[in-house]
Simulated assay, not measured.
Amino acid sequence: MLKAFIGYASMSGNTEDIANIIQEVLAHKGCEVEMQCLDTVDADTLSEYDCVFIGAYTWGDGDLPYEAEDFFDELDALKFNGLNAACFGSGDRAYPKYCAAVDLLANKLAERGCHVFDQLLKIELNPETDAQIKECKEFAENVYSWSIEKKGKSYV
């Protein structure tokens, strides 16, 4: 069984909605899934999982939300040896740096030794259209398959 973690920061509920869709897909696949807000996550526990999904909305001019700052800073003291990670978030194209927090998280996780899934999930505002929901589900499915391949196991 794949053990997955979903950590997210959500102010308006948009990124939490994305996290919930990911969680539903993983649970349907039979994964053991834990989900938490990033402001309560102890970053050094991430290595206990086969795959981690980290998500945040983008604040201001392409910044991490304050709820994610402590988590982000904690990562500097850690080294993940090949932990599978995937990043997601919501944003608003009205701002110049659309979903930049997703890029910041992905880059930091890669810098700390994670294998970061090459597709970053960026959703405009709330995943409410059929196309957006499908994109979230496909992202979760693809990360699941990729994680199993990386682990060299079959959980199906």
Rank of each mutant, 00 (worst) to 15 (best):
M1G: 07
M1A: 05
L2A: 02
G7N: 01
G7K: 00
A9G: 04
A9I: 03
M11L: 11
S12M: 09
S12W: 08
G13T: 02
G13F: 02
N14C: 04
T15N: 10
T15P: 03
E16S: 02
I22T: 03
I22S: 03
E24I: 02
E24Y: 03
A27I: 15
A27M: 13
K29G: 03
K29H: 06
M35R: 05
Q36E: 13
C37W: 11
D39H: 09
T40Y: 12
T40R: 14
V41A: 02
D42W: 12
T45H: 09
L46M: 14
S47W: 10
V52T: 12
V52E: 05
F53I: 07
G55A: 13
Y57N: 09
Y57S: 08
T58N: 08
T58Q: 07
G62V: 07
G62T: 11
D63I: 10
P65C: 13
P65I: 07
P65F: 06
E67W: 05
A68I: 07
D70E: 15
F72W: 10
D73I: 10
E74W: 05
L75Y: 10
L75S: 08
D76K: 08
K79A: 14
N81V: 06
A86Q: 01
S90I: 05
R93N: 13
R93P: 06
Y95N: 02
P96S: 08
K97R: 09
Y98K: 04
Y98E: 03
V102A: 00
L104H: 04
N107T: 04
N107R: 06
K108Y: 00
A110R: 03
F117Q: 01
Q119R: 11
L121F: 02
E124M: 08
N126L: 12
P127D: 11
P127Y: 05
T129D: 12
A131C: 09
A131S: 13
Q132G: 10
I133T: 13
I133H: 10
E135M: 10
C136K: 04
E138W: 14
F139S: 06
F139L: 08
N142G: 13
Y144M: 11
S147W: 09
E149R: 15
K151G: 13
K153T: 15
